[in-house]
């Protein structure tokens, strides 16, 4: 029988369009009737929304300067 554990394991597959046939039907039906799995899926979406807002990491200056130094020696400036 299709249970909550199955639904929680398939939430990403469903978002990715990777479910088909009978499994998709069972998943969708389960999501209609199960309040806990609805909460679980909403939390999943909310966690990702927070993750997307995480600020990008800064490049340590010495790392950036090393990369730029390599760029200068290997790609000399020339007119576009």
């Amino acid at each position: 029988m299709f249970a909550c554990r199955d639904a929680t394991e398939l939430m990403t597959e469903e978002r990715e369009g990777a479910l088909s046939g009978w499994v998709r039907v069972q998943f969708r039906f389960h999501m209609l009737i199960c309040p806990h799995c609805k909460v679980c899926r909403r939390q999943l979406d909310e966690a990702l929304a927070v993750a997307r807002e995480l600020p990008p990491e800064e490049v340590p200056p010495e790392v950036e300067e090393k990369a730029v130094a390599a760029f200068r020696t290997r790609v000399p400036r020339r007119p576009l």
Binding site: E64, A67, V68, F71, R72, V75, R77, R78, L80
Partner: peptide, 14 residues
């Protein structure tokens, strides 16, 4: 990048 545009390269690294 091929023209040696350093700012473009820095942006990419970041």
């Amino acid at each position: 990048l091929r023209a040696g545009d350093e700012e473009a390269f820095r942006g990419l690294v970041r």
